[in-house]
Amino acid sequence: MKRLVLGLAAAAMLALAPATAQTYPTRPVTMLVPFAAGGTTDVLARIMAEEMGRVLGQNVIVENVGGAGGRTGTERVIRGEPDGHTILFGNMGPMAASRALFKDQRYDPRSDLAPVGLVADVPMVMAASKKSGAAELKSFVAKIKAEGDKVTFGTAGFGATSDLAPRLLLHLSGLKATIVSYRGAGPAIQDLIGGFVDGVIDQTATLLPLHAAGSVTALAVTGESRLPQAPDVPTFAEAGLPDFGMKVWNALAVHKDTSPAIIARLVAALDTSLSSDFVKKRFEDLAVPIPPPAIRGPAHLDQLVKTEVGRWETVLKDVPKQ
């Protein structure tokens, strides 16, 4: 009798497993952004959450959990339930480069997260505050040469992409300035507008609208050509720093033990959302390229994360770990 009961229980569990995946999601999904509200990753996440919610048939709610360069929020997903109801909307900071920057990092993005797919590969913009007096990249560089560490870059926090960018720029130019860390890009950009920091290097989605509004001055953008959304902003090559070509990839991932069927559902929802007119228009307005279908899936993201971890370990080998 005991064997019969155990057999029936096992059969019942097997029968229920595919049904759970097929009915996912059974409640609202939390899209966790590991940075403060107002930054590019947050802006893109809110666009994707709105469209993916329509595709999945459930509300997708954005939750911001900033701190430790994006690691705090990332760890929340890693320590959470592997049921697909909490998904990470992260970027190359906590999903790759942070391995080279923090002595106490408790996770490995290559093995502790299951990739869902690439969302965007976003150009970077360097912007100066109006108070800085810099109207072009050359004048900002001249300001750094003259004033040294009195010149400040605001960032979303140590290890964030807006922190990696000025470190790379200063390395390439052989200059020194002061890097000021905030709890997210939003607060850093607010201080840029207020003139409390001289410059910020962040993604197009946050800085180009402010440049268009006259709140800050965009000095240069990464990429081979100028962006149609900001034809007055030169490329870094045109502005005199051709070696600076950093772009920021944003992506979705889940707990490593999430079932393949639920991951497949999220992959399909992401692909459908990226192909929607709503996302295409919103991304275009922000000068954010949508990845082609061939590189959207988990296989490409898995390889990208592994490659990027190694690349940033090389680039940041001389930066003291925190």
Rank of each mutant, 00 (worst) to 15 (best):
K317A: 14
P320V: 04
D104C: 01
D83W: 04
N91P: 05
V180K: 10
P293D: 07
M124Y: 11
L113S: 04
I295V: 11
A251E: 12
Y24W: 15
F140W: 05
K130M: 02
A45C: 05
D271W: 03
D104V: 05
H255A: 12
V33F: 11
H255I: 02
P82M: 06
V125E: 01
F140N: 00
L14D: 05
A120L: 02
V233H: 02
A36I: 03
A10F: 08
K280H: 10
V125W: 00
G80H: 05
P231E: 07
T307H: 15
P34T: 14
R110H: 04
H85G: 02
L169M: 12
L252H: 03
A177M: 11
L219K: 00
L227G: 00
R46Y: 01
E50T: 08
S181V: 05
A294P: 09
V200K: 00
R99P: 06
R79I: 08
A36Y: 10
G159Q: 08
D149S: 12
S98R: 07
F153H: 12
G297R: 13
W312F: 15
Q229C: 15
S181L: 06
Q229W: 10
M1V: 09
Q58F: 14
R296G: 10
F158K: 10
M52Q: 06
E238T: 13
T20G: 03
M13V: 04
E224S: 01
T235V: 01
P234N: 08
V221M: 00
K145Y: 11
T72G: 01
G310T: 07
Q58D: 12
L207F: 00
G117A: 06
V216L: 03
A264V: 04
S132F: 00
N91G: 12
I87P: 03
Y182W: 11
A128D: 12
I47D: 01
A177Y: 06
H171S: 14
K321Y: 02
V180P: 07
A17Q: 08
H211S: 09
S276W: 07
L8E: 08
P25F: 00
A68R: 14
I262P: 02
V216W: 07
E313T: 15
L241C: 01
L164I: 11
G133M: 15
L8N: 07
L168Q: 13
G297E: 13
V119I: 13
A299R: 11
A230S: 10
T206K: 01
A146F: 14
K176T: 10
V116K: 06
L175P: 02
E238Q: 15
A15W: 14
